[in-house]
Write a protein that binds this DNA or RNA. Sequence first.
DNA 1: CGCGCTGTCCCCCGAAAGTGGGACACGCGC
DNA 2: GCGCGTGTCCCACTTTCGGGGGACAGCGCG
Lengths: 208, 208
Amino acid sequence: MVTPRLLLVEDDALYRETVAEALRVAGHEVLEASTAAEALAVRGPLVGALVDLRLSRGSGFEVLTQLRARAPGAMLAALTAHSTDEDVFGAIAAGADGYLLKSDAIDELPAHVGALLKGLSPLSPGIARRLMAHFAQRPRLPPDAKLSAREQELLEVLAGGFTFQECASSMGISVETVKTLVKRIRDKFHAGSVTEAISVGFRAGLLK
Amino acid sequence: MVTPRLLLVEDDALYRETVAEALRVAGHEVLEASTAAEALAVRGPLVGALVDLRLSRGSGFEVLTQLRARAPGAMLAALTAHSTDEDVFGAIAAGADGYLLKSDAIDELPAHVGALLKGLSPLSPGIARRLMAHFAQRPRLPPDAKLSAREQELLEVLAGGFTFQECASSMGISVETVKTLVKRIRDKFHAGSVTEAISVGFRAGLLK
DNA sequence: CGCGCTGTCCCCCGAAAGTGGGACACGCGC
DNA sequence: GCGCGTGTCCCACTTTCGGGGGACAGCGCG
C-alpha cells in the first residue's frame, strides 16, 4: 500500500523536529526539509505539505508553487510565524490550501493537519478574520447599481480594454447601442467615464 | 455584573431550541428571536449573535446590518444551511464575523461560539476554502508588472475616473507627463487602454 | 392598458485618449 | 563611467469617448 507521506519544510531545526514528532505521534509519515532545494528534491507521492514561507535558504512561496504544480492533488498549508498581507495572500496565490501560525499550540497542529488532509482549509485564528476583512471593506456599491444582463455583459467586455467598436462587433450590436448601454451603466454607477465604471464594477464585486 | 447575552435568530423553532439548549449548557445566556422584527426589538447589551440568513419573516442580512450598526463591538455570525456566494459574501458585507453551517454537528457549535466571542472568526469547513478560492483565482498578474511609485500613484488616480488633465493637475505635473506615464503603465501591463490597465491593476491586487 | 425598463439604432460635435515620435536630467547599479 | 530605468516635458496626428439630443419595439407589472 502507499503510505501517505507528509512533507514538512522548515528551516528552524528545533521547531521542525518538534512539529515532526507531534505529527508522527498522530500517525503521519513525515518527511523533513530545511531548505527550498531539499523540499523540491523530494520524490514520490505526497498527500500534503506544511511549508514555512520564510526560509533561510530559498523561498517557501516557490516551494508551494512547485508542489502545487507537480502534485495538484496534495493539500498544502503555510506554517509560519508571520501574517502580513503579503505572506497570507502570497501563500494563497501560490496555492496554499491552509494557513497556520507558529503561535498556535503545537498540540493543535495534528488536528489542523487532519483537517487539511480531509480537504478542508485550516486557518489559524486571526487569518480567517484577515480574509473576511478584505471582503467586508469593499461593500461600497451604489444601491441603485443593478445592471441589466446586457449591461453587465458589456461591462465585462469593456473591462477587457476593448473599444466601443470592438465591443459592438463581439456582441453583435452597433456602436450606437454600445454607447447607449455605456451611458446607462455610467448613470447607474454615477461614473463619469468607462474607467470609473470599471473601478466601481470591481469594487462592487460585479467584475473579477 | 453584566450578564453576557447572546442573541439567536432562527425561524425554525425546533432547531432554534436545540441550539439554544446546547449554548445554555455551555454557559451562555441565550435570547431567542424567530423573526427579523423580534431580533431587532431586543434591547440591552449583546456580546454576540447567531443569525439565520433566510428567515421566513424578514432578512437575516438586515438583522446583521442593524446589529452591526447598533452594537459595533458585538461579534456576529451567520448560522445557515446555505453557502452560496451571495449568502457568504452578503453576510460578510453585512458585518458578520463568522459563518457557521447548520450541517455542522450541534456539539461543535459551543466551541465555535466560544471562538466567536473571543474575537476570532469561526468558519465552517468549506467556507474558508470558499474565501481562499476568491483570492487564489486572481493571481494572473504579468510578471514584469512592477510599477514605479509614480506610476502606481497615477494608476490609482486614473481608477477614480479622472481625465488626463485632471490627473495632471492633482499630481502637479503636465498632461504630457501623464501621457508618458500612462504609456509606460500600459506597456508594462500589456494593456491597450487605460480601461484595461485598470482591470489588470484590480486583478493583480494593485488597486482595491 | 398604459407606464417604465430594456435593447436597439441614429446624428452631431467637442473633448479626451491613443500613436509615434523626440528630448533632457537624475539616480542607481555594474 | 556608462547604461538603464525613471520622471519630466514637448509636438502632431488619428481615433475614440462623452454629452446632448431623439426614436422605436418588446416586455413585464400594476
